[in-house]
């Protein structure tokens, strides 16, 4: 009796794990294909029925072809955009969140309500006039339209998120500092922000993902190859190829592996905050 029960339990576990692995295979399928096929030669990557694994030697040449001077140039531009977003968004959002929670200025409720009301707005609705503004002030074909706005907005969802954290802080520390004659800047940067650092980090990480993935922004504003970010540069390099030989699927896959490495590293480092962030805001990176 005891034994059959134990067997049943083990069996149940085995079935559960079997399905865990099966579903994993589904979700990892695109990545596995990308990884193995990045070691194909171009001819092999264009063959029908080529299978999953390289038939002969693993071709590291696709990576050499993927990391050309253009790739490094696009990567450099992307880094500039990321830097601006990772600094700008948490800073703007943090300042606003502090003001909304700690400073009793007139009209804060109205401004807060208006700002929150814009969360549901389709971004495509504001895109055209914003584009025209940047055209009029001559910012097209510069990185400015995709870096400067990061310092003027910060994302209302981010503000909301930081506010929730600031509200949960105990008041005593701040009161003690006020007694000692600390000013607002001191209160913010020495007391409040360090205490809510996890959520500031979360906003920064989400800004990183946003900037790394952004495609429409650079596509709209930049036509000069020297200023392309990775997304747009890679799109122009491969998606406009005419013949299959020019499209080089193996080099595409190698490029994909390379582009995926930084977000994966960031994800592994900030895994806990990100998973919590998704559940808090419902944002999917």
């Amino acid at each position: 009796m005891e034994r059959s029960r134990a067997v049943k339990k083990v069996l149940r576990k085995a079935v559960v794990y079997f399905f865990f692995v099966l579903i994993s295979a589904f979700f990892l399928f695109p990545l596995i294909v990308m990884f193995f096929r990045s070691f194909f030669t171009t001819a092999e990557s264009l063959r029908i029925g080529a299978g999953l694994f390289p038939s002969g030697e693993w071709n590291w040449g696709s990576y050499a072809q993927a990391i050309d001077s253009d790739f490094l140039k696009y990567f450099g531009n992307t880094l500039i955009v990321i830097l601006a977003n990772v600094i700008g968004q948490p800073l703007t959002a943090g300042l606003a969140a502090y003001a909304f929670t700690k400073v009793k200025f007139d009209g804060r409720k109205i401004i807060f309500t208006v700002a929150m009301g814009t969360i549901m707005l389709p971004s495509i609705l504001t895109m055209i006039p914003v584009y025209k503004i940047f055209v009029d002030i001559g910012w097209t074909n510069t990185l400015l339209p995709i870096t400067v706005p990061a310092f003027f907005g910060g994302g209302f969802l981010n503000i909301f998120l930081i506010m929730q954290f600031i509200r949960s802080l105990p008041k005593e520390m701040e009161e003690a500092a006020v007694m000692d004659g600390a000013n607002v800047l001191h209160l913010m940067f020495r007391i409040t922000f360090p205490l809510v650092f996890p959520v500031i980090a979360l906003v920064a990480v989400q800004s990183f993902f946003f900037a790394w993935n952004d495609f429409m922004g650079p596509l709209m504003y930049i036509t000069d190859d020297d200023l392309f970010t990775l997304s747009v540069g890679i799109y122009n390099k491969f998606f406009t190829a005419i013949t299959p030989e020019e499209s080089m699927p193996n080099v595409q896959m190698a490029t994909g592996v390379l582009i995926l490495i930084p977000p994966m590293i960031v994800f592994m480092l900030f895994q806990k905050q990100l998973v919590e962030g998704v559940t808090l805001t419902g944002l999917k990176a």
């Binding site: 695109p30 990545l31 997304s231 582009i259 977000p263 990176a285």
Partner: peptide
């Protein structure tokens, strides 16, 4: 993990 893949990739 698939949610982390940039749309270009």
């Amino acid at each position: 993990i698939p949610c982390l893949i940039p749309s270009i990739v």
